[in-house]
Design a protein around this nucleic acid. Structure first.
Length: 946
RNA sequence: GGGCAGUUAGCUCAGCGGUAGAGCGUCUCCUUUACACGGAGAGGGUCGGGGGUUCGAUCCCCUCACUGCCCACCA
């Protein structure tokens, strides 16, 4: 028995467990089955499921279940990322909260790492259970972790090989330094934000009190007309504290204003050093004073200039962004935070009369994407990957079509970045991660090997004796190990059967914000080490935003937690959760008010299927998703609709038969619904193959609701209640068979409810072979579509719709049974009416229907395929209302006819447009004209009566 | 400063050279024996503006406007 309501909370976890335990998530062993493989974008070990994950994994699961049903040997490879900074941050925070005066440094590296591992074992990977709730059918038995033994070996091997090939090297250059985490980060981890800042104008006095004439007024031609005598050069800066590290002042070689003093020296105030005035192409004479202070160690542009001119570089700060304890930093600033030092420098410059003015200015400032502190360009030693070299093949693989982006528009983004790629800084001054396999000898000679022993051997060979070695302290960027994901998770460097079978993987599903971080790196490393691009297809999906189009974030208090959508969440809990992440009380109050407004009853439990179907339906290519709860509700209703259809089928003993042949039915409605099923199956298949998830979801939705439920189930009611036992049996089997096809086609989107119904509908009739998840996807021959059945049912549907519409427009009470007369129809049409009389009467709520020679006076009429339908309603409907309706209809028709005539009268159209287009238009014109004539006739009659 | 999207019904969005669609919302009517998380019906759009290509443009091209995102060193 199918209960009256579907209870996702009870059903969903039950099937998650059953599927996994049955081994259905494992790739099937059949060597003839085509492989299909997706590697999951590994969530952070610290992560919990957010709506973006829900979308990402829903789409992957739709594909994976689809291909599994199609009989492929499917592997969805799950795993997690160790997430260097994020994880280290979590554990450090935990240490801080625990009191006990412990921190990372007081514990020491080894002990700290022990704590991180302990944390990982206890709290890491929560997200996987959440993904199970979503229905994700990963092969959980193959779960991997970027820091597990196998993947760590892969990392070592890759690093060593790249080093030996010269593609990894150590270099001293400016990096983005995060003073909060005290580590270098890559360009991608820097977030440039425009903030309100200042532009400080300083005067640097010329050496020995020298002076020059500086033009201050110009005529229209730009020639100077007035000068003033200056004993200084004016510079402007947004970062005054860095002036202590200036190595020169640069002007453009063409800048005549400064020509007299080029090559001379100025006094660097506060630092009490003399620095030269040099020329370089870099300064823009039209911007500011045209003179730029050059601080090679703290600015990326200045760095280039300083290198070119061999200027000294002064590292002004320590790892925390405090002014360094160095002899070139005046004692009074040492140890000051850089922002404190800035104030002090400005004050001191002003005190000695060298502050010209301060200007308000919007400036672009770099922030660490995790720390949210201002990034400091710092001159340090780091390890780099020669990305420019590796990018060549990665670009070629996409150019040649070996790897395709879907939607294709992302190809450009990929090229644009890849073609301008910078060396990738892969070292991080953290503890949690893969330690760089580099060892230093006493003279700092570097030995890069896969193990300490190997390094020792190499050192012995190099020095001719055993020497003490010390390993590099740094770890690798997290993305270095995730860049190996498509092959490391399959067992590389071992040549495993999985690697052979599933590499290159089929499709990568990810969001566009991660193309550079991850996709690009996998392409580069996959091609280099496997000689083949890691995936055939990269499907880029949208970002999920809230109803207003804003990015969801905890600090904005607008997040929708997928688990709350699945399980429901009462208002108070929801409010508390949203307030939690907001520090400012005023903002929190606002969020609370908005939340109470938007969800007065909290969140209803919609179940995973509804969430999945919603996300798939909204996943149109190339557009971000605005998620609204009303949409989710609508798709929950869809599930209920299906549930009730199945209940109806079961109540009417519609059971599946082993030997059912979709060619066998004789009843037109059955032949028709089989044809419709074939079309729906083809549409879902086609759209899923083209990765148009929204179209695929829409196709099955329409078929279930607007075809199977709205029409077919209504059509078969008379048959199911009738006396014709053969027709009844045929109909029961057909209805059950179509429902089965629906369950299969819908399963990738709504796995739980379909699997539950698959089990429930097997209570009568033939036994199932197994769970739905391992069924066979339908593949039908087109000749199952019966064109005659299609035409007949289509005629009937239009007749019923027109009748209903006319009744409603004329305010005929819904309960009133009225007669219907088919006037002047040909024999075939009359036969149709006879055959479907029961159905038509029932669905159009008729007293009776029959053919007639003429419409009785005062009838309401409409036209279908040239035949007049008359509803004798004299006395029920008032004549002016009917006349008005007719006038409106006629007006519409005549308007269309006029348009079509104009087109058909156009010689250019009839001669140049394809024959079938012209022909179709002619037919439409004739139909409309015939209808118009008949309606006009009816109108005349009514007028006659009035 | 470059690049990429988008602008279609009240809202959220599909569609895409040949009769403008869906969901939600709105309005009518309906306790019809699967379903009120339902059924039936209705209203609502000069497809951002302007050019062009075409027999024909919401769809292709150009241009403008606005919105969003990404990248970028103006000190």
């Amino acid at each position: 028995m199918i209960e009256t309501t579907f209870n996702p909370k009870e059903v969903e976890p039950r099937w998650s467990k059953a599927w996994e335990e049955s081994g259905a998530f494992k790739p099937k062993a059949d060597p003839k089955a085509d492989p299909f493989c997706i590697v999951i974008p590994p969530p952070n070990v610290t992560g919990s499921l957010h709506i973006g994950h829900a979308l990402n994994n829903t789409l992957q699961d739709v594909l994976v279940r689809f291909e599994r049903l199609r009989g492929k040997s499917v592997l969805w490879q799950p795993g997690m990322d160790h997430a260097g900074i994020a994880t280290q941050m979590v554990v450090e925070r935990q240490l801080a909260q625990a009191g006990a005066n412990e921190d990372r440094r007081s514990l020491g590296r080894e002990e700290f790492l022990k704590r991180v591992w302990a944390w990982k074992e206890e709290s890491g990977g929560m997200i996987f259970n959440q993904l199970r709730r979503l229905g994700a059918s990963c092969d959980w038995s193959r779960e991997r972790f970027t820091m597990d033994e196998g993947l760590s070996r892969a990392v070592l091997k890759v690093f060593v090989q790249l080093y030996k090939e010269g593609l990894i090297y150590k270099d001293t250059r400016l990096v983005n330094w995060d003073p909060h985490f005290e580590t270098a980060i890559s360009d991608l981890e820097v977030d440039n934000r425009e903030v309100q800042g200042h532009f400080w104008h300083f005067k640097y006095p010329l050496e020995n009190g020298e002076t020059y004439e500086f033009p201050i007024e110009h005529d229209e031609a730009g020639n100077p007309t007035a000068w003033e005598t200056r004993n200084y050069i004016a510079i402007a800066t947004t970062r005054p504290e860095t002036m202590l590290g200036d190595g020169a002042v640069a002007v453009h070689p063409s800048d005549k204003r400064y020509a007299p003093i080029v090559g001379k020296r100025v006094l660097l105030p506060l630092a009490d050093r003399y620095i030269p005035i040099i020329t370089d192409e870099y300064p823009d004479p039209t911007f500011g004073s045209g003179a730029v202070k050059i601080t090679g160690a703290h600015d990326f542009n200045d760095y280039k200039v300083a290198r070119a001119h061999d200027l000294p570089m002064y590292v002004l700060m320590d790892t925390k962004g405090r002014m360094a304890n160095a002899e070139y930093v005046p004692a009074k600033y040492r140890g000051l935070d850089r922002f404190e030092a800035r104030k002090q420098v400005v004050a001191d410059i002003e005190a000695i009369g060298l502050l010209d003015r301060i200007e308000d200015k919007k400036v672009n400032q770099p922030f660490g994407d995790r720390s949210n502190v201002v990034i400091e360009p710092m001159l340090t030693d780091q390890w780099y990957v020669n990305a420019g070299e590796l990018a060549k093949n990665a670009i070629a693989a996409v150019e040649s079509g070996k790897t395709k982006f879907v939607p294709e528009a992302w190809t450009k983004t990929y090229y644009n970045w890849m073609r301008n790629i910078e060396p990738w800084c892969v070292s991080r001054q953290l503890w949690w991660g893969h330690r760089i396999p580099a060892w230093y000898g006493p003279d700092d000679h570097i030995f890069v090997e896969e193990s300490a022993d190997a390094a020792k051997r190499a050192a012995k060979k190099h020095y001719g004796k055993d020497v003490p070695l010390r390993q590099d302290e740094d770890v690798l960027d997290t993305w270095f190990s995730s860049g190996l994901w498509p092959f490391s998770t399959l067992g590389w460097p071992e040549n495993t059967p999985e690697l052979k079978k599933f590499y290159p993987t089929s499709t990568l599903v990810t969001a566009h914000d991660i193309i550079f971080f991850w996709v690009a790196r996998m392409m580069m490393l996959g091609l280099h080490f496997m000689k083949e691009a890691p995936f055939h297809e990269v499907y880029i999906h949208a970002l999920v935003r809230d109803e207003k189009g804003q990015k969801m974030s905890k600090t904005k208090g607008n997040v929708l937690d997928p688990l709350d959508i699945i399980d429901g969440c009462d208002l108070e809990t929801l409010v508390a959760k949203r307030r939690e992440a907001i520090t400012n009380k005023k903002d929190a109050d606002l969020v609370e008010r908005e939340t109470r407004n938007a969800f007065p009853k909290g969140l209803h439990a919609f179940g995973a299927d509804a969430l999945r179907f919603t996300l798939a339906s909204l996943a149109a290519q190339g557009r971000d998703i605005k998620l609204s709860v009303s949409r989710i509700e609508g798709y929950r209703n869809f599930g209920t609709k299906l549930w009730n259809a199945a209940r109806f089928a079961q109540m009417n003993e519609c059971a599946v038969w082993d030997e059912y042949d979709p060619r066998s039915p004789e009843q037109t409605v059955n032949r028709w619904i089989i044809g419709e099923t074939v079309k729906a199956a083809a549409a879902v298949t086609r759209e899923l193959e083209a990765r148009r998830f929204n179209e695929a979801a829409g196709a099955i939705y329409k078929f279930v609701w607007n075809v199977y439920c709205d029409w077919y189930l209504e059509f078969i009611k008379p048959l199911l209640n009738g006396e014709d036992e053969a027709a009844k049996a045929e109909t029961r089997r057909t209805a059950a068979w179509v429902l089965d096809q629906i369950l299969i086609l819908l399963h990738p989107f709504m796995p739980f409810i379909t699997e539950e119904l698959w089990a429930k509908t097997a209570e009568y009739g033939a036994k199932r072979n197994g769970m739905l998840i391992v069924e066979a996807w339908p593949r039908f021959a087109d000749d199952l579509i019966d064109a005659n059945a299609e035409a007949e049912i289509d005629w009937m549907v239009r007749l019923i719709e027109e009748t209903r519409s006319t009744r409603s427009e004329l305010n005929v009470p819904a309960g009133a049974k009225i007669p219907l007369l088919l006037v002047g129809a040909d024999a075939a049409t009359q036969l149709r009416l006879e055959r479907y009389q029961d159905l038509i009467d029932r669905m159009a709520r008729l007293d009776y229907s029959t053919s007639a020679d003429a419409a009785p006076k005062g009838s309401v009429t409409f036209v279908i395929d040239g035949a007049t339908i008359a509803l004798p309603l004299e006395g029920v409907v008032d004549l002016p209302t009917e006349a008005a309706r007719l006038v409106k209809e006629i007006g519409k028709l005549d308007g269309e006819i006029a348009k079509m005539d104009a087109k058909l009268g156009n010689q250019a159209f009839t001669s140049k447009a394809p024959e079938e287009v012209v022909e179709e238009l002619r037919e439409r014109r004739e139909d409309a004209a015939a209808s118009s004539v008949k309606l006009k006739h009816a109108l005349e009659q009514i007028k006659g009566l009035g």
